[in-house]
Protein backbone atom coordinates (compact mmCIF):
# COMPACT_ATOMS: atom_id res chain seq x y z
CA UNK A 1 0.00 0.00 0.00
CA UNK A 2 1.14 3.52 -0.80
CA UNK A 3 2.28 5.37 2.33
CA UNK A 4 0.10 8.48 2.62
CA UNK A 5 0.74 11.11 5.33
CA UNK A 6 -2.41 9.95 7.16
CA UNK A 7 -1.40 6.27 7.00
CA UNK A 8 2.12 7.16 8.20
CA UNK A 9 0.62 9.01 11.17
CA UNK A 10 -1.71 6.05 11.93
CA UNK A 11 1.24 3.64 11.82
CA UNK A 12 3.24 5.80 14.19
CA UNK A 13 0.34 5.92 16.64
CA UNK A 14 -0.12 2.15 16.34
CA UNK A 15 3.57 1.56 17.07
CA UNK A 16 3.42 3.78 20.15
CA UNK A 17 0.30 2.00 21.36
CA UNK A 18 1.96 -1.40 20.89
CA UNK A 19 4.89 -0.32 23.03
CA UNK A 20 2.76 1.22 25.77
CA UNK A 21 -0.28 -1.10 25.88
CA UNK A 22 1.40 -3.45 28.30
CA UNK A 23 3.20 -0.70 30.25
CA UNK A 24 1.96 0.44 33.66
CA UNK A 25 0.60 3.84 34.73
CA UNK A 26 2.71 3.54 37.87
CA UNK A 27 6.50 3.19 38.26
CA UNK A 28 7.65 -0.45 38.31
CA UNK A 29 9.08 -2.04 41.48
CA UNK A 30 12.51 -1.70 39.94
CA UNK A 31 12.00 2.00 39.31
CA UNK A 32 10.60 2.52 42.80
CA UNK A 33 13.71 0.92 44.20
CA UNK A 34 15.88 3.38 42.22
CA UNK A 35 13.76 6.24 43.60
CA UNK A 36 14.13 4.89 47.12
CA UNK A 37 17.90 4.74 46.74
CA UNK A 38 18.03 8.50 46.04
CA UNK A 39 19.54 10.64 48.76
CA UNK A 40 16.76 12.77 50.25
CA UNK A 41 16.70 15.53 52.83
CA UNK A 42 15.82 13.06 55.57
CA UNK A 43 19.01 11.05 54.89
CA UNK A 44 21.12 14.20 54.70
CA UNK A 45 19.77 15.55 58.01
CA UNK A 46 20.21 12.28 59.90
CA UNK A 47 23.68 11.71 58.53
CA UNK A 48 24.93 15.23 59.29
CA UNK A 49 23.31 15.17 62.73
CA UNK A 50 25.08 11.90 63.56
CA UNK A 51 28.38 13.28 62.23
CA UNK A 52 28.11 16.31 64.50
CA UNK A 53 26.71 14.68 67.64
CA UNK A 54 28.07 11.17 67.43
CA UNK A 55 26.91 7.94 65.82
CA UNK A 56 25.21 6.96 69.10
CA UNK A 57 22.65 9.73 68.53
CA UNK A 58 21.23 8.54 65.19
CA UNK A 59 17.82 7.86 66.75
CA UNK A 60 17.70 11.37 68.25
CA UNK A 61 18.41 12.76 64.78
CA UNK A 62 15.49 10.75 63.37
CA UNK A 63 13.16 11.99 66.10
CA UNK A 64 14.18 15.63 65.50
CA UNK A 65 13.62 15.21 61.77
CA UNK A 66 10.16 13.66 62.26
CA UNK A 67 9.15 16.54 64.54
CA UNK A 68 10.43 19.03 61.97
CA UNK A 69 8.36 17.36 59.25
CA UNK A 70 5.23 17.51 61.42
CA UNK A 71 5.77 21.20 62.07
CA UNK A 72 6.46 21.76 58.35
CA UNK A 73 3.10 20.22 57.37
CA UNK A 74 1.24 22.05 60.13
CA UNK A 75 2.67 25.45 59.20
CA UNK A 76 2.27 24.84 55.47
CA UNK A 77 -1.45 24.16 55.91
CA UNK A 78 -1.85 27.28 58.00
CA UNK A 79 0.08 29.38 55.44
CA UNK A 80 -2.03 28.05 52.56
CA UNK A 81 -5.28 28.73 54.44
CA UNK A 82 -4.25 32.30 55.08
CA UNK A 83 -3.09 32.75 51.44
CA UNK A 84 -6.40 31.31 50.27
CA UNK A 85 -8.24 33.91 52.33
CA UNK A 86 -5.94 36.77 51.28
CA UNK A 87 -5.83 36.04 47.54
CA UNK A 88 -9.21 34.28 47.13
CA UNK A 89 -7.56 31.42 45.24
CA UNK A 90 -7.53 27.67 45.92
CA UNK A 91 -4.90 26.58 43.42
CA UNK A 92 -1.35 26.93 44.74
CA UNK A 93 0.42 24.99 41.98
CA UNK A 94 3.13 27.62 41.50
CA UNK A 95 4.02 27.85 45.18
CA UNK A 96 3.68 24.12 45.87
CA UNK A 97 5.78 23.18 42.84
CA UNK A 98 8.57 25.45 44.06
CA UNK A 99 11.16 23.19 45.66
CA UNK A 100 12.97 26.11 47.30
CA UNK A 101 9.75 27.01 49.14
CA UNK A 102 9.51 23.49 50.58
CA UNK A 103 13.16 23.28 51.60
CA UNK A 104 12.97 26.75 53.17
CA UNK A 105 9.85 25.87 55.15
CA UNK A 106 11.33 22.55 56.28
CA UNK A 107 14.58 24.29 57.28
CA UNK A 108 12.63 26.79 59.37
CA UNK A 109 10.65 23.99 61.05
CA UNK A 110 13.83 22.03 61.77
CA UNK A 111 15.54 25.15 63.15
CA UNK A 112 12.63 25.58 65.59
CA UNK A 113 12.93 21.94 66.68
CA UNK A 114 16.71 22.12 67.02
CA UNK A 115 16.59 25.38 68.97
CA UNK A 116 13.85 23.99 71.23
CA UNK A 117 15.76 20.83 72.14
CA UNK A 118 19.31 22.18 72.13
CA UNK A 119 21.87 19.58 73.21
CA UNK A 120 20.85 15.90 73.46
CA UNK A 121 21.03 14.88 77.14
CA UNK A 122 22.85 11.63 76.51
CA UNK A 123 25.57 13.14 74.35
CA UNK A 124 29.02 12.93 75.90
CA UNK A 125 30.87 16.06 77.00
CA UNK A 126 32.94 16.06 73.82
CA UNK A 127 29.84 15.54 71.72
CA UNK A 128 28.08 18.41 73.48
CA UNK A 129 30.94 20.75 72.69
CA UNK A 130 30.75 19.75 69.04
CA UNK A 131 26.97 20.10 68.98
CA UNK A 132 26.84 23.57 70.48
CA UNK A 133 29.26 24.88 67.93
CA UNK A 134 28.10 22.89 64.92
CA UNK A 135 24.34 22.47 65.15
CA UNK A 136 23.29 26.00 65.90
CA UNK A 137 22.12 28.31 63.11
CA UNK A 138 23.23 28.47 60.24
CA UNK A 139 24.02 24.73 60.42
CA UNK A 140 20.58 23.83 59.05
CA UNK A 141 20.88 25.90 55.87
CA UNK A 142 24.39 24.58 55.23
CA UNK A 143 23.41 20.92 55.45
CA UNK A 144 20.24 21.39 53.36
CA UNK A 145 22.23 23.43 50.81
CA UNK A 146 19.74 26.27 51.12
CA UNK A 147 20.53 29.92 50.46
CA UNK A 148 20.14 32.04 53.60
CA UNK A 149 18.06 34.58 51.74
CA UNK A 150 15.53 31.89 50.79
CA UNK A 151 15.13 30.95 54.44
CA UNK A 152 14.64 34.63 55.26
CA UNK A 153 11.65 34.71 52.91
CA UNK A 154 9.67 32.16 54.97
CA UNK A 155 10.46 33.30 58.52
CA UNK A 156 7.82 36.00 58.84
CA UNK A 157 5.06 33.86 57.33
CA UNK A 158 6.15 30.99 59.58
CA UNK A 159 5.82 33.16 62.71
CA UNK A 160 2.40 34.43 61.61
CA UNK A 161 1.19 30.92 60.74
CA UNK A 162 2.21 29.19 63.99
CA UNK A 163 0.48 30.90 66.92
CA UNK A 164 2.01 28.53 69.49
CA UNK A 165 5.61 29.66 69.09
CA UNK A 166 7.03 30.88 72.39
CA UNK A 167 8.34 34.41 72.77
CA UNK A 168 11.87 32.95 73.02
CA UNK A 169 11.43 31.05 69.77
CA UNK A 170 10.14 34.13 67.97
CA UNK A 171 13.20 35.99 69.28
CA UNK A 172 15.43 33.18 68.08
CA UNK A 173 13.94 33.31 64.57
CA UNK A 174 14.30 37.07 64.61
CA UNK A 175 17.99 36.65 65.48
CA UNK A 176 18.34 34.26 62.52
CA UNK A 177 16.70 36.91 60.33
CA UNK A 178 19.14 39.55 61.55
CA UNK A 179 22.14 37.31 60.91
CA UNK A 180 20.87 36.65 57.40
CA UNK A 181 20.32 40.33 56.63
CA UNK A 182 23.55 41.48 58.26
CA UNK A 183 25.88 38.95 56.67
CA UNK A 184 24.65 35.63 55.29
CA UNK A 185 22.46 37.13 52.54
CA UNK A 186 25.46 39.07 51.21
CA UNK A 187 27.61 36.07 50.35
CA UNK A 188 28.67 36.08 46.71
CA UNK A 189 26.29 33.29 45.60
CA UNK A 190 23.22 34.86 47.23
CA UNK A 191 20.03 35.22 45.13
CA UNK A 192 19.70 38.68 46.66
CA UNK A 193 22.10 40.15 44.07
CA UNK A 194 19.94 39.01 41.17
CA UNK A 195 16.89 40.56 42.86
CA UNK A 196 18.72 43.86 43.32
CA UNK A 197 19.78 43.77 39.67
CA UNK A 198 16.20 43.12 38.52
CA UNK A 199 14.92 45.85 40.78
CA UNK A 200 17.47 48.33 39.38
CA UNK A 201 16.51 47.39 35.84
CA UNK A 202 12.83 47.96 36.64
CA UNK A 203 13.65 51.31 38.25
CA UNK A 204 15.77 52.27 35.23
CA UNK A 205 12.89 51.52 32.88
CA UNK A 206 10.48 53.50 35.05
CA UNK A 207 12.90 56.47 35.13
CA UNK A 208 13.14 56.47 31.36
CA UNK A 209 9.38 56.53 31.00
CA UNK A 210 8.85 59.36 33.46
CA UNK A 211 9.03 62.97 32.18
CA UNK A 212 12.12 64.81 33.47
CA UNK A 213 10.12 67.23 35.61
CA UNK A 214 8.63 64.39 37.67
Amino acid sequence: LQQTPVRAAMNTIQQLMMILNSASDEPSDNLVSYFNNCTNLSCVFKQKFAEAVGQGCIEIGSQRYRLGVRLYYRVMESILKSEEKRLSIHNFSKLLNNNIFHVSLLACALEVVMATYGTPRNASLNDRTIMETDLSFPWIINILDLKAFDLYKVIESFIKAEPNLTREMIKHLECCEHRIMESLAWQSDSPLFELIKQSKERDGQADQLEPVGN
Partner: peptide, 21 residues
Amino acid sequence: TQDYHFGLEEGEGISELFDCD
Protein backbone atom coordinates in the same frame (compact mmCIF):
# COMPACT_ATOMS: atom_id res chain seq x y z
CA THR B 1 4.37 38.18 68.34
CA GLN B 2 3.95 41.72 69.68
CA ASP B 3 7.72 42.42 69.80
CA TYR B 4 8.39 41.01 66.37
CA HIS B 5 8.96 43.47 63.56
CA PHE B 6 6.93 42.42 60.54
CA GLY B 7 8.61 43.37 57.27
CA LEU B 8 5.97 42.35 54.74
CA GLU B 9 3.83 45.17 53.40
CA GLU B 10 0.12 45.18 54.18
CA GLY B 11 -1.58 42.75 51.81
CA GLU B 12 1.67 40.95 50.92
CA GLY B 13 2.32 37.28 51.65
CA ILE B 14 4.59 34.37 50.93
CA SER B 15 3.23 33.89 47.40
CA GLU B 16 4.76 37.18 46.28
CA LEU B 17 8.12 36.28 47.82
CA PHE B 18 8.31 33.04 45.85
CA ASP B 19 7.25 34.72 42.60
CA CYS B 20 3.72 33.37 42.51
CA ASP B 21 0.80 35.47 41.25
